[in-house]
Design a protein around this nucleic acid. Structure first.
Length: 787
RNA sequence: GCUCGGAUGGUGGAACUGGUAGACACGCAGGACUUAAAAUCCUGUGCCCUCAACAGGCGUGCGGGUUCGAUUCCCGCUCCGAGUACCA
């Protein structure tokens, strides 16, 4: 609601209530206002504003709001009557059922995250996050400095606006490409070209954005028949459409400069368009494009002879004075779509009256999901909420039918933890002032450009409105590795049109068919062999499935990928807890490897951790499993073992290296077992050190030791004097190859040490009578003899 | 395609700042205890040559380089994973 009732003021560089915008409109119209808003805003005066009807005013405001309605393209599956996510579309067909999917335009709620692009970018420098994640976000925000240029359409008053980072190449333009979805395509297409354009658009509609992107090898496009005039030299430039240009980015139009851009070069090659050299440094443009900024301009009228920097400056000024363009900063990040055509999500608290969206009143919240007969779209393809009876506001106006996406909740939930019982506010100002932000956030890098960016966006917005105090929500971030799953696949045979059939072919035979791979539940697959009976009942669409078997079996394909419900490769840890206990599972997960590393889930080593915990328990017991500790003074060796582990665990916790701590615990327990240690002093400390790793067993032992409140026990202090050594077994290497170890006192100087080394008989043997050229001595590390 | 990450024994991994590669586990093999099994304990286990020991050679995805010395640094690839919007 707040986002709907807000706009972004680029002057104060923060979000403000929509009321302040309305007052500005009333006072001075919109010509002086610097705001993040839709591109197609007309200029109006204060007087105009007052004369506008209520409806006109609201329509205009919608173009400024931070939550607004926007036409977006979605994957539409007519057979299922629903919108599909990208990962539910496989090769242009729905994963479920194999029905055709096409790109369809739809009015969708969006959020103007782009208003925050610069702040999201700058903020990265202030937070302690892994560099790769920051880098991904920087690339995602994608700031580029360039210019926008208007190309006038021949014989009309309209023009096409183009964004370019290389305005200096404007004299090399030999064509203009617009996205197939571009709103001007229809009006630009001439009678002669209509067939070709229609065909091309039909083809494009079948491709998802992902497909369009994956295929960089084929150059395709179609000529509209119309021309624009290059403002720089007045020349006629043909307008093409091509699917490498996306409607959603910039203006959905690109100027084609074949000499400087390889993609444009390929396009010009294929369709016989001129390739114009514009820099004297471009020597090989007959074979490939050269995106150089070196050299001086040629064939470029008034920038001939200038360098790159001079040309950019001159052109930007020229564009502005000619009123055909201006210098511009562009962000590749698009606004985020906020509506979902699903049932399970928060309903959007909006109703429609006279085609305009209105918010329900705040005291009417929360708006609860209505009951519906089945969680499916309607027969006419409307979202599930359309099934609800009387889903109307005050019995008159229709409610919005889409629901909110997952990130509506995930973008602010941590504030709820600060004040979870609060019934009136999302969190009280006092609790927010106390807790501030999240000190350490552990999350997977798969959220780098989704959740972690949306959260930063909402947090900044909440700060602008004074609800929270920190600019950034997560001070420090660590990427834990993803636990991956082994996914199994079946292969659906496709007919000549590429449509899915009812037949599935075993993995070994799939080369002979055109197939598309489908995830299958790992629980109905054993040793890659599919249980056919279970498969048929798994989902209704497979009831009558037919199989092409190999050796009487259906063999599934295997891939390792992230564990996810949608991939049907999730395993449940409950069974492990039942047989090994939660401590074992917890420690095993740590033992598996470094926190940041991804790996497939595998329980092969869990026995080792389980045995360790039993061995640890036995330290506190005698042979008959009776609790036994002694009050004897610990020996030197026992103290050494203890202080080794104190040091190690301290260091490991600092650097989040839990797997190495677990190994060290095993070493310590092995040592203490060998020493037959029963000393209370040692064993009490061991419980404290291990307790964060295996809390249950430690709590139990703590009680047996006659103590309470383990979580408040003081972590033991490391004493280095227990670890001091007088000697070190130096590795002696010859030409960098380790030959033997030699015990030397650590107090020896370099000279004394090398003398002692050369005096050694065995070393002389290794030297084979040769005189060393050089001896490298690193105290406490190594001796290397070069011969 | 693009952005980001990863690769070390049969397996998970260790080696933190360029200094003994394979710690600690799993698995495997052999043995002890047991009527037997489970549990527990002991020994061995990177690869190659060798009956074995001694000794030797090769080894951190691949190909080069820097260095007395490289799993670690540099250049060029391959494969695997995550994200994705052909970003003008």
């Amino acid at each position: 609601m707040q986002l709907f009732n807000a706009w972004y003021n680029l002057e104060s560089n923060q979000a403000e209530n929509i009321q302040s915008l309305i007052s500005l409109f009333e006072k001075e119209g919109n010509s002086q206002i610097k705001a993040s808003c839709d591109e197609d805003i007309e200029i109006f005066s204060a007087q105009d504003w007052k004369n506008f009807s209520e409806k006109q005013q609201q329509t205009l405001l919608l173009k400024y709001r931070l939550t607004y309605l926007k036409e977006s393209t979605v994957n539409w599956c007519a057979a299922l009557g629903t919108v599909l996510a990208n990962d539910e579309v496989k090769d242009g067909f729905s994963e479920r059922g194999g029905h055709p999917v096409e790109q369809k335009k739809m009015m969708q709620w969006s959020m103007r995250i782009s208003a925050y692009a610069e702040r999201l970018l700058q903020g990265l420098d202030t937070i302690d996050w892994p560099e790769p994640v920051k880098e991904m976000q920087r690339n995602w925000i994608g700031k580029s400095v360039g210019a926008s240029v208007k190309f006038k359409i021949e014989n009309t008053d309209n023009s096409i606006e183009v964004f370019t980072t290389r305005v200096d190449t404007i004299f090399g333009v030999s064509f203009l490409v617009i996205a197939p979805e571009h709103e001007l395509v229809n009006s630009l297409t001439t009678k002669e070209q209509k067939n070709e354009i229609d065909n091309y658009i039909a083809q494009t509609k079948k491709k998802s954005e992902l497909d369009r992107m994956a295929d960089t090898k084929t150059t395709s496009g179609a000529f509209t028949g119309s021309y624009v005039i290059n403002p720089a030299n007045g020349e006629k430039v043909p307008i093409w459409i091509a699917d490498y240009v996306l409607a959603g980015y910039g203006t959905g139009a690109v100027m084609g400069v074949p000499s400087g851009d390889q993609r444009d070069w390929l396009f010009a090659q294929k369709f016989n368009l001129p390739i114009i050299q514009i820099l004297d440094s471009q020597a090989n443009i007959a074979t490939e494009a050269e995106a150089t900024k070196e050299g001086k301009y040629i064939n470029s009228d008034f920038i001939n002879g200038l360098t790159y920097k001079e040309a950019i400056e001159k052109l930007n000024l020229w564009l502005e004075t000619q009123k055909v363009g201006k210098a511009k900063i562009n962000y590749r990040m698009r606004d985020a779509i906020f509506g979902r055509q699903r049932y399970w999500g928060e309903p959007i608290p909006v109703y429609f009256k006279d085609g305009l969206p209105h918010l329900i009143k705040e005291e009417e919240l929360p708006l609860l999901l209505p009951e519906i007969d089945k969680y499916l779209p309607t027969e006419t393809g409307e979202p599930p909420l359309a099934r609800a009876e009387n889903w109307t506001y005050q019995d008159q106006a229709n409610y919005e039918l889409s629901t909110m996406p997952g990130w509506a909740g995930s973008s602010w939930y941590w504030y709820r933890y600060m004040d979870a019982q609060n019934e009136n506010q999302f969190a009280s100002p006092e609790s927010i002032a106390y807790w501030k932000d999240v000190d350490l956030y552990i999350g997977g890098s798969e959220h780098a450009t989704g959740h972690l960016l949306y959260s930063r966006f909402w947090n900044k917005f909440l700060k602008d409105l004074g609800y929270v105090n920190e600019e950034e929500p997560f001070k420090k971030l660590i990427n834990q590795g993803m636990i991956q799953g082994r996914s199994n696949f079946v292969y659906r045979v496709m007919d000549e049109d590429g449509k899915g059939t009812n037949t599935l072919v075993s993995a070994g035979l799939r080369k002979d068919f055109k197939t598309s791979a489908l995830h299958v539940d790992v629980n109905i697959v054993e040793n890659e062999i599919l249980n056919l009976a279970k498969f048929k009942t798994w989902r209704p669409e497979f009831k009558d499935a037919e199989f092409i078997l190999e050796n009487g079996k259906y063999i599934c394909g295997v891939e390792v990928e992230k564990m996810s419900k949608s991939k049907f490769n999730v395993v449940n840890p409950d069974d492990l807890i039942k047989s090994y206990g939660a401590d074992t599972l917890r420690m095993y997960e740590m033992f598996l490897g470094p926190l940041e590393q991804s790996k497939p889930w595998n329980t092969n080593g869990i026995e080792g951790v389980f045995k360790f915990l039993r061995k640890f328990w036995r330290l506190y017991h005698n042979e008959s499993w009776v609790f036994t500790v002694s009050n004897e003074k610990p020996s030197k060796e026992e103290l050494k073992a203890l202080h080794k582990i104190i040091k190690k665990v301290q260091e490991d916790i600092e650097r989040f290296s839990f797997n190495t701590s677990v190994s060290s615990f095993m070493i310590a327990v092995n040592e203490l077992t060998d020493l037959k240690c029963k000393s209370r002093e040692i064993l009490e400390n061991m419980v404290i050190i291990l307790s964060p790793y295996a809390p249950h067993i430690c709590e139990e032992l703590w009680h047996l030791l006659g103590k309470e409140n383990l979580s408040y026990a003081q972590f033991p202090t490391f004493n280095p004097s227990y670890l001091e050594e007088a000697e070190f077994a130096y590795p002696i290497s010859i030409n960098g190859k380790m030959k033997m170890n030699l015990n030397l006192s650590l107090s020896l100087s370099e000279n004394e040490a090398t003398t002692a080394v050369l005096a050694n008989e065995q070393i002389q043997k290794h030297l084979e009578g040769k005189t060393p050229k050089k001896i490298i001595f690193v105290k406490g590390k190594i001796v290397n003899i070069v011969i």
